[in-house]
């Protein structure tokens, strides 16, 4: 009897830390099999270029998934923000105005989602899927079928350069923006009343309604916050690549969903959290980077990521089910 019990406890502990184990295992494997995986230069590259943007989008996705929804239009918010930003820069407006307008554009995407869900009573999945389709068309129409918007080097203003090229205390400014966003979402979800409402909406929307929670208002906030975070990511993305490339935000969608769900494997009650999502993002990023360094080509990388998702989620949920 006692033996059985002990093994169950260790299984439970294992299932809660599976993401950490996977993390450690991947770091060890890639450190041994490649020369420069653990080098500062490479880690800097991973964090600055791969992690930040996906992490910011995933934080937005975390809010939505925690509230029991899904946002398939994150890529649209990213792109619309970048499109607005770069269109204004190209037309000669200041970077500050461009950033403001880009964020407002993303906010409008969030409000449109909220309108579809609250007023037209469309399911979040279908509403945001529709916005995803419309967003693709809007971008193609606005760019003559998908021509990138670029600036000449002379057109770069100091503020524009500062967005992605400056450093603070030895770290690139996007990393600090991510830190800021993470803290903000952490406070929202885990310290504020809004987070309580999100948790109840995610667990049982009916209880939220019958407890007097203004469900439409809170859902609107959920989708607007997500869109705003995506808008920030969109401005960072176009600043990094020094151009607006239509539909480039779509690449974040599945990774953001994946990172959020991998993150839920970290918590005991399988709920999305800020820490979990950040872990999920890092896991995906170092996996990609490591596979690249050991020489897998892009097509095989996706296989590696797929297997990673299976392993983490299967182990985590499988162990848990056994325990029950």
């Amino acid at each position: 009897m006692d033996n059985v019990k002990k093994s169950i406890i260790s299984l439970e502990a294992l299932s809660n830390y599976i993401v950490l184990f996977a993390f450690a295992a991947i770091v060890v494997i890639f450190s041994v099999t490649t020369d420069n995986f653990l080098s500062l230069e490479n880690l800097y590259n991973v964090v600055a270029n791969k992690v930040v943007l996906l992490a910011i989008v995933s934080l937005g996705m975390t809010i939505v998934i925690a509230a029991g929804g899904i946002d398939l239009s994150v890529g649209v918010s990213v792109d619309i923000s970048g499109l607005t930003f770069f269109s204004l820069l190209a037309a000669g407006y200041s970077a500050v105005l461009g950033v403001g307008a880009g964020l407002v554009a993303a906010l409008l995407v969030g409000l449109f989602n909220a309108f579809l869900i609250n007023k037209l009573k469309i399911d979040a999945f279908l509403a945001t899927l529709g916005v995803l389709f419309i967003g693709s068309s809007v971008q193609r129409l606005a760019t003559n079928g998908g021509t990138p918007i670029t600036l000449t080097t002379e057109e770069y203003s100091p503020i524009f350069r500062a967005i992605s090229d400056s450093q603070l205390f030895g770290l690139p400014s996007p990393v600090w923006i991510l830190v800021g966003c993470s803290i903000a979402v952490y406070l929202l979800l885990h310290k504020m009343v809004f987070g309580r409402f999100v948790a109840v909406l995610g667990a049982k929307p009916g209880v939220a309604l019958y407890s007097g929670v203004r469900v439409p208002r809170e859902l609107s906030k959920v989708f607007v916050y997500c869109a705003l975070l995506c808008g920030i990511a969109g401005i960072l993305l176009s600043s990094q690549v020094k151009s607006y490339i239509p539909l480039s935000g779509d690449a974040f969608l599945l990774d953001a969903i994946g990172a959020t769900f991998i993150g839920t494997a970290l918590t005991k009650d399988r709920r999305p959290t800020v820490i979990g999502t950040l872990m999920g993002v890092f896991l995906l990023a170092i996996m990609r980077n490591g596979l690249l360094l050991i020489g897998w080509n892009f097509f095989w990388q996706q296989v590696g990521i797929g297997v990673l998702v299976f392993v983490v989620l299967a182990l985590s949920f499988g162990l848990r089910r056994r325990e029950e």
Partner: peptide, 9 residues
């Protein structure tokens, strides 16, 4: 169970 308490919380 649908409207009174969120049992997972």
């Amino acid at each position: 169970r649908a409207h009174g308490v969120a049992v997972d919380l």
